[in-house]
């Protein structure tokens, strides 16, 4: 069954905001777990959240992680905000 986008967005934003003090970057599998969905279903929602700039991607070059846009040290440390 396809995931409801708005409901999924709320779930992710709530969970990531709650954890924001201790953790700002999450693996894709963490997001799939929050959504309790199969990776392929979760991917559709996560892609849309990135497109809408709710989430942003961080990459080391080898690994990719997701976080709420603007949360964490990255943006200000890199003068990107």
């Amino acid at each position: 069954m396809a995931l409801d986008y708005e409901e999924s967005k709320t779930k992710i934003v709530e969970k990531l905001t709650k954890k924001a003090k201790t953790k700002s970057k999450f693996y894709f599998s963490d997001l799939a777990k929050i959504l309790e969905a199969k990776p392929r279903e979760a991917k559709k929602v996560v892609n849309k959240l990135v497109e809408e700039q709710v989430l942003e991607l961080w990459s080391s070059g080898s690994t990719s992680m997701y976080g709420l846009k603007g949360i964490g040290k990255q943006a200000s440390a890199e003068q990107e905000d």
Binding site: V50, E51, E56, L57, W58, S59, S60, G61, S64, Q74, A75, A77, E78, E80
Partner: peptide, 20 residues
């Protein structure tokens, strides 16, 4: 060098690797 970054091009999650 710092480790990684959040930069990219719109619509893509790869192809650009932030280096500062």
């Amino acid at each position: 060098w710092k480790h990684g970054g959040i930069v990219g091009v719109f619509g893509y999650g790869g192809g650009v690797i932030g280096r500062y």
